[in-house]
């Protein structure tokens, strides 16, 4: 079928969204994803785990704060518990604290109104701290007219900054119900609307999210500052 393993790292389930974990896994599997990240907002974590053949469930959380001073506390609290830590963007000060914290994986939901809250300074810190910028394609899918025009304009600008400062970018559906998901090829076609090349979009949906997951799974097994050089069990016998 396809050469890549596709991941969508921003999916919401009950009680945050309107679909159950099993429904989401089933539809994502049908559409051709290898894994989805369940990132409910804090205090609305899913009550139970689900599983489905052929698809991986990645535990995550989405942190939404009104005041940037509270962000670091939440990040510290959830970092050890989840594999994907997503911050809901907002004003420039919130976005700034998110991209300046190396424990944050993804900055999502950048405002698409008049003020974008993202600029070259933040792009540079995002690159330094390896915080990925998410393009939420649900805005392009659901909105019509002026809002979509603004969103596409901001996405194009953010993509330009991301290219210039080499910031990792990912594509997400930000799905609230199972009918909000789209197949990977459709996501790539939608990304083409704001100027993303096909290979860029492929990476944004496969290798970059995969790298984020791997990085965090590795981090949890060995503490920071410790590196396993070689492990030979026979020497101890």
């Amino acid at each position: 079928m396809s050469r890549f393993d596709y991941y969508d790292l921003n999916v919401h389930v009950l009680p945050d969204g309107s679909g159950s974990v099993n429904q989401m896994l089933s539809i994502a599997n049908h559409l051709g994803y290898s894994g989805i990240g369940i990132t409910n907002h804090i205090d609305r974590e899913p009550p139970s785990d689900g599983s489905h053949e052929g698809i991986e469930l990645i535990h995550g959380v989405e942190i939404e704060v009104r005041n940037s001073s509270r962000l670091h506390g939440f990040v510290g609290k959830f970092r050890k518990k989840v594999d994907v830590l997503v911050v809901h963007g907002g004003s420039e000060s919130i976005n700034r604290s998110a991209v300046e914290n190396p424990n944050v994986d993804v900055l999502t939901n950048l405002p698409t109104g008049r003020d974008n809250g993202f600029n070259h300074v933040l792009a540079k810190s995002a690159h330094d701290n390896e915080v990925a910028i998410a393009f939420n394609l649900d805005v392009i899918i659901k909105q019509r007219g002026g809002r979509r025009v603004h969103a596409l304009g901001h996405f194009r600008k953010n993509l330009q900054l991301a290219r210039k400062y080499n910031v990792p970018t990912i594509l997400t559906s930000n799905a609230m119900s199972c009918y909000d998901m789209r197949a990977p090829r459709e996501m790539i076609a939608l990304a083409g609307l704001f100027g993303m090349e096909e290979d860029e979009a492929n990476a944004a949906l496969s290798t970059i999210p995969e790298g984020i997951i791997k990085r965090n799974r590795r981090n949890t097994s060995t503490p920071q500052g410790v590196r396993i050089i070689q492990y030979n069990s026979q020497e101890f016998c």
């Binding site: 539809i27 009918y179 197949a183 459709e186």
Partner: peptide, 18 residues
């Protein structure tokens, strides 16, 4: 493909075009 992806409802019911 992009046009088909922006379809969210058909006949009043939520839908995905795959």
């Amino acid at each position: 493909r992009a046009i088909l992806a922006t379809i969210t409802r058909v006949g009043g019911y939520p839908a995905i075009v795959n």
